[in-house]
Design a protein around this nucleic acid. Structure first.
Length: 490
RNA sequence: GAGUUCGUAGCUCAGUCGGUAGAGCAUUUGACUUUUAAUCAAAGGGUCGCGGGUUCGAAUCCCACCGAGCUCACCA
């Protein structure tokens, strides 16, 4: 924490003053490196120890270690680390003086020739040494680094300076988003942006954040999902659209949940949920190959091969497989609850058959789904936006995608019959009146859109953060989000 | 939201039974040097998360609060 009285800051302020009194600006406007550390390591990998070259380079980065009274300075740039050798016979006196004012943590720039020291370290023998941003804060101790979990998230910039693994995870996350975007663009999807301020909450079952627009004197919801707006675009003739953007849900925070998270949704006209299953398989393979180089990820000790076909099985069959009970045989809520109880699942609080199915699945099945699995054909009464199943009226054409025991996405054959959509919404409204504050609201304009004719459409959604966790091996969602939501300190 | 563990120097951590607060790195000063967590000598650095209480005396025991970790609940 910034502390006016701390000795490190004072000593650094004194050095800053010394530099400025000598007419030196330690916060220059521009400094252009000619190369990066990793490039040099690659280019000179065969240079023998003790050999000097005449190749002049300029490097810029953060001073991570200063040894031998400044004779050796480790410089870290975006690509890696390289050592500068600041020797009085090579470096001008003025620069030697400047070196006395350098601290670990300063941004520095060094020009010189490339050599490998007798000890074998690739080095830039400095002919010019600049401080390009004087740091006033000490870096954490170099051996242990910054390990305090709270401090790492609160001062993420320090975490990224010190911990290469943290930096690598975030970098991969950004590459994942980029690869997802490329995949959809390759398949002729148009990237669109839809509102984040919603007058009516819709598209998912979740608790919202509520805000207020002053000029309109109107409460607005931060979006929990972009689904309804994207479908309106399909009605408007945008056959293939996708959106990558933030969703907000006013719920708990844990390893798998951050109040704001990045959702991907895509809609494809003239397709159904089977097409969406193919699309998700292809998407995951593509992203894994683009970012990791191969379609394989590690889940703990277990390797998962994404190039194999993903399992597709109905939720009812899966429950039967894992527990032996067949919930299709339950004709009433009470019968379903009774069957759940017989395998030790308390579904007493469930208000409908589908919720019992969901409860049994969550308790008995979810944690077993390590290999990629599409859990198909969800109960109709818990999925108000999906088409009724073409061969079973109790189900809908909706699947959830599981990988590494996490729900990473879902897809539907989108409900396109405006009259049925209205009935489904009305059931949600009734549930809401019975105290279910996550039930959806009736969106008249969305129904009006459907009344204009909504082509058969497949839609899918996926959590970018969770995909990032699986592809990077991050154990918590906070590691794939640069600035996760934290409590205010003080 | 519930349970549980934790919070000591800039960082990583010790601190015994309640008896004047410790180390390493970092900082300052000096020495030395083609070093790899450089080394050597010396010095400075603390509201023990915050506020109460018990006690002759609290980093230590008790209570409340703040923040964090883990587990659970809700959820993607």
């Amino acid at each position: 924490m910034a502390n006016e009285t701390n000795i490190h800051r004072e000593s650094r302020l004194n050095k800053l003053k010394t530099l400025q009194e000598k007419g030196y600006n330690p916060y220059p406007y521009r400094f252009v490196p000619s190369t990066y550390a990793a490039e040099l390591h690659e280019k000179y990998k065969d240079l023998e120890a003790g050999v000097d070259t005449e190749d002049r380079v300029t490097i810029a980065g953060r001073a991570m270690a200063v040894r031998n009274s400044g004779m050796f300075v480790d410089i870290k740039d975006k690509s890696g680390k390289i050592q500068a050798f600041c020797y009085k016979k090579i470096l001008p006196e003025e620069d030697m003086e400047r070196l006395k004012c350098v601290d670990v943590g300063d941004m520095v720039g060094v020009s010189g020739f490339v050599r490998r020291t007798p000890r074998g370290e690739l080095t830039i023998a400095a002919e010019k040494f600049d401080i390009i941003a004087k740091s006033l804060q000490p870096l954490p101790e170099k051996f242990h680094g910054l390990t305090d979990v709270d401090a790492r998230y609160r001062q993420r910039y320090v975490d990224y300076i010190m911990n290469d693994e943290s930096k690598e995870i975030f970098k991969k996350r950004c590459q994942i988003t980029s690869a997802v975007r490329r995949f959809f663009e390759n398949h002729e999807f148009l990237e669109v942006e839809t509102p984040m301020l919603h007058p009516i909450m819709g598209g998912a079952n979740a608790k919202p954040f509520i805000t207020h627009h002053n000029a309109l004197d109107m409460d607005l919801y931060l979006r929990i999902a972009p689904e309804l707006y994207l479908k309106k675009l399909v009605v408007g003739g945008f056959d293939r659209v996708f959106e990558i953007g933030r969703n907000f849900r006013n719920e708990g925070i844990d390893k798998n949940h951050n109040p704001e998270f990045t959702g991907l949704e895509a809609y494809q006209a003239y397709a159904d949920y089977n097409d969406m299953a193919d699309l998700i398989e292809n998407l995951l393979r593509f992203v894994a190959i683009e970012v990791l180089g191969e379609p394989k990820i590690m889940f703990g000790e277990q390797e998962i091969d994404l190039s194999k076909p993903f399992r597709r099985i109905s939720i009812i069959d899966l429950i039967k497989e894992k527990t032996g009970i067949d919930l299709m045989e339950a004709q009433t809520l009470e019968q379903a609850q009774e069957m759940a109880k017989s395998i030790g699942v308390d579904a007493g609080a469930c208000s409908c058959w589908g919720k019992v199915v969901q409860e049994v699945f969550d308790e008995k099945v979810e944690h077993t789904l390590i290999e990629p699995t599409f859990v198909m054909d969800m109960p109709r009464d818990i999925s108000p936006l999906a088409k009724t199943h073409r061969s079973n009226p109790r189900l809908v054409e909706h699947f959830d995608a599981y990988l590494g025991t996490m729900e990473i996405g879902c897809a539907y054959s989108e409900l396109s019959n405006p009259l049925e959509q209205r009935e489904r919404f009305e059931a949600e409204v009734a549930a809401r009146e019975n105290g279910d504050d996550e039930a959806q609201m009736l969106d008249e304009d969305f129904i009006n859109a459907l009344e204009n004719g909504f082509a058969p459409t497949g839609g899918m959604g996926m959590g970018i953060d969770r995909i990032s966790m699986l592809l990077t091996g991050a154990e918590t969602i906070r590691d794939v989000i640069a600035f996760p939501t934290l409590k205010k300190k003080d």
